[in-house]
């Protein structure tokens, strides 16, 4: 399905305050994921500095502003800029979230859950089609963390996600920390969730660490990855042909060596010998 895509290995979300350390650890970091929205309207010299990173890393654009679930077609200007960024970075794929982040009047700028209904499904599929007809590279959708769940949906999140991926042909960017956080806050078994979605469509995985705020586990990207999340990562890697695992660490940075240790551990997990389904071990 996504067999042709390159196996990138273990990477890090690029954050400008960590630029020097990131460059110094280039041998330990297989690729960088960039927040595409930070470059779509940037001055050309900022984009030039981004493109210079290509000399050391493959780059993967990852967005928050596509708002794929909003009941409005994606902004053509945004799509044009995104298409140019994907092309200029030479990215093998790009991604955004299965959520909505804006309406015509409000830039929520936070990943907001969709109502899991047939109507929402039609909207997402229509919008994904609009994206994939304008941008050639494979498109991945990421599952989100959310705290306020819209009641009265017609299907579960797992069913909604499955149908979106199968009906659009999009790949899955599976954030296992988001699965973990939601399972704690919303009270479900994360392994049952994983087994209910098409893991074979997983191209990339996100790992991160969160902390408790106001009685909820919050996806802050500020803490070490929880051991339960490492277990979930191993569970998925045993079942899916994952091309890339990425560590998100956006604030509360520790010594950079700890970040590199996380990346190294993810890479070791990816390379661990595991049984081939229906065959002998690889």
């Amino acid at each position: 399905m996504f067999d042709e895509l390159p196996e990138l290995g273990a990477g890090l979300g690029y954050r400008m305050p960590l630029h020097e350390q990131t460059m110094a650890a280039a041998d330990e970091i297989d690729f960088l994921e960039i927040i595409s929205d930070q470059y779509l309207y940037a001055a050309p010299d900022k984009v030039d500095r981004l493109l210079a990173l290509r000399e050391s890393f493959p780059l993967i654009p990852h967005g928050v502003g596509l708002s794929i679930g909003t009941d409005v077609l994606p902004d053509p200007n945004y799509l044009s800029r995104l298409a140019a960024l994907v092309e200029r970075t030479g990215a093998p794929w790009f991604s955004d979230h299965l959520s909505f982040t804006k309406t015509p009047e409000t830039n929520i700028d936070q990943l907001t859950p969709l109502w899991f209904t047939e109507e929402s499904l039609r909207i997402v599929c229509r919008n994904v089609k609009e994206v994939t007809t304008r941008i050639d590279a494979p498109f991945l959708l990421e599952n989100i963390t959310y705290y306020a769940e819209l009641p009265g949906g017609e299907m579960s999140e797992a069913e909604f996600t499955t149908r979106v991926l199968e009906e659009t042909g999009a790949g899955l960017l599976l954030d296992v920390n988001n699965v973990w956080v939601n399972s704690i806050n919303l009270g479900f078994d994360p392994y049952e969730f994983l087994d209910a979605i098409p893991l074979e469509r997983t191209v990339q995985i996100h790992i991160a660490g969160g902390k408790e705020i106001g009685g909820m586990l919050v996806d802050t990207h500020s803490e070490p990855v929880d051991e339960e999340v490492w277990k979930l990562l191993g569970h998925v890697l045993d079942r899916a042909p994952v091309k890339a695992v990425l560590l998100e660490w956006d604030q509360g940075w520790p010594e950079f060596g700890e970040i590199v240790d996380h990346v190294r551990r993810a890479r070791d997990l990816m390379r661990r010998e595991r049984p081939v389904p229906g065959g002998t071990s690889a």
């Binding site: 909003t70 009941d71 909505f100 309406t103 009047e105 409000t106 936070q110 907001t112 109502w115 819209l150």
Partner: peptide, 15 residues
């Protein structure tokens, strides 16, 4: 337009 209005209301509740 109905879902969009729902999203508008939800978005405004959050902000």
């Amino acid at each position: 337009m109905s879902i969009l209005d729902m999203q508008r209301a939800f978005g405004r509740m959050l902000t």
